[in-house]
Amino acid sequence: MDETALVNSAQHGDLDSFNTLILHYQDSIFHTALRIIGDEDLAQDATQEAFISAFRNISSFRGGSFKAWLMRMVTNACYDEFRRQKRRPTTPLEPDTADGEEIDSPRWLADKNMTPAEKAEADELEHAIQHCLDALPTDFRTAVVLADIQGMDYSEVATASRVPLGTIKSRLARARLRLRECLRGFEELLPSSFRLEGERNS
């Protein structure tokens, strides 16, 4: 995929070229939105909004990392979603059991390649990590998602977040420290290597 050529075509209004770029980046953009927002439906909305906004503003892209620029769009879309949520708080519609209790892992989300025990364990770990991510302030969460989950370097994270490099360093350090503290509460869910580290440290 010739990214530069596709971006150039998209800047001249070629929607097909932009759709090719979307197909290439949609997984990582959705994953970022999901980790920042923590809700799949809202993450889908934010992803769609981010791509629409990206196409409308693609003329403002002046080179550099296109992925970082897209991440800025999705970050903005997530912040917009948070603002919308604050204005109109909603109650999530979780599927219920016969007893009226919520099902944490609905059947239709299950991965058929995993055994039920593995699936339950993976879900619990993922929920624990997401819980700790959600407990972080939004700016810290964005920094840690972009750097540690998306593997972006500091300058890309700074571009995506539109803050100075020094601020990113500080946010990342604080976010990692808080995450480690939060994850200590879920030691039994963590892989053995992390548990050993924890024991050694304590």
């Binding site: 949609q26 959705f30 993976a122 540690d148 989950i149 994850l183 992390f194 924890g198």
Partner: peptide, 20 residues
């Protein structure tokens, strides 16, 4: 450890296409 745990998070695929 915090960084490693985050990197171990399974990458979630987009549930649908977001083409415009």
């Amino acid at each position: 450890a915090a960084q490693s745990i985050l990197r171990k998070l399974p990458a979630r695929k987009a549930p649908r296409n977001f083409t415009l």
